[in-house]
């Protein structure tokens, strides 16, 4: 059975809430039913049929083609199945998702992977502020799962993150890992200012020495971390080849709060 495809018609003049377009909600719906789903965010009614050409059938595999930064909440609360996006997406990509997979070829807006608890979100290009941060009404950011961002991120990456793994190919913005409770950020292109600000537990792994280090991170020197080997091998299992080796410099902090988190800077 062919994948269910949503092909965007024109750039919409309002933001779209695409959270209804997840397998769980679409299973068993006719094309007509799907086209009638309201996705507008203003008082002007806008349905799926207005904004998208709908093709295919299999709601377990959903494709979005030609989307742009106004397409919000794609894969929000996703509980299983796969979503592939050829284009950019708006805010809250995969927010609160619990399982399944989302792949985006373009860039994502703010709050990508916010408060997700499981599954995998892969963004090929950039992500906005607060990726893996707290969704509205949640007290914590990402609580599990795996988020990969090929390019740069905005500020507050992994804010109040509780668990899970984020890998960033490019540079993270200011306050990466701000207020983070636990979990792991792998930062391959460095970060802006104030990385790890308010970090309680949790790990910021820098593959290269970052430019700015908060003074409230305290040096523990270089040593071996079998965890890095485990992580490297696990990442390889997902198709990501990142050399982590076993040796890293460990800085502990943020001493301004609990101080039981760490920066691991590969040696």
């Amino acid at each position: 059975m062919s994948a269910l495809v949503f092909e965007m018609k024109d750039t919409p003049d309002q933001r779209l809430d695409l959270s209804p377009l997840v397998p769980e909600r679409l299973n068993g719906l006719s094309r007509k039913d799907i086209q009638a789903i309201e996705i507008g965010t203003t008082r002007e009614t806008l349905t799926v049929g207005d904004a998208f050409k709908v093709k295919g059938k299999n709601a377990q595999e959903i494709h979005f083609d030609g989307t742009d930064e106004r397409c919000d909440k794609i894969g929000a609360k996703l509980a299983g199945g796969e979503i592939f996006v050829d284009g950019d997406v708006g805010s809250q990509l995969g927010a609160r998702m619990t399982d399944g997979k989302i792949e985006v070829k373009g860039s994502a807006g703010v709050l990508a992977g916010a408060s997700m608890t499981g599954g995998h979100v892969a963004i090929r290009r950039d992500a906005g502020d607060q990726a893996a941060g707290p969704a509205f009404g949640e007290t914590m950011g990402m609580k599990g799962g795996f988020l990969t961002i090929g390019g740069d991120t905005g500020a507050l990456l992994g804010e109040r993150m509780r668990r899970g793994l984020v890998v960033v190919g490019g540079k993270a913005g200011d306050y990466a890992g701000g207020r983070m409770i636990a979990g792991t950020l792998v930062l391959r292109g460095g970060a802006g200012r104030y990385a790890g600000y308010g970090l309680r537990r949790g790990s910021l792994i820098f593959t290269e020495k970052p430019k700015d280090i908060l003074p409230t991170f305290s040096d523990s020197g270089v040593m071996e971390f079998d965890y890095l080997l485990l992580l490297e091998k696990w990442l390889r299992g997902t198709g990501m080849r990142i050399k982590l080796g076993g040796r890293a410099r460990r800085l502990m902090g943020d001493m301004a709060v609990l101080g039981k988190g760490e920066m691991l800077i590969l040696a």
Binding site: G164, S203, Y227, L230
Partner: peptide, 18 residues
């Protein structure tokens, strides 16, 4: 420190050897 990878939890326990 607790670390979860692929649904499995691991503990990292500081010891004299590392």
């Amino acid at each position: 420190m607790s670390k979860v990878l692929g649904g499995k939890r691991y503990w990292r326990i500081p010891v004299m050897g590392g």
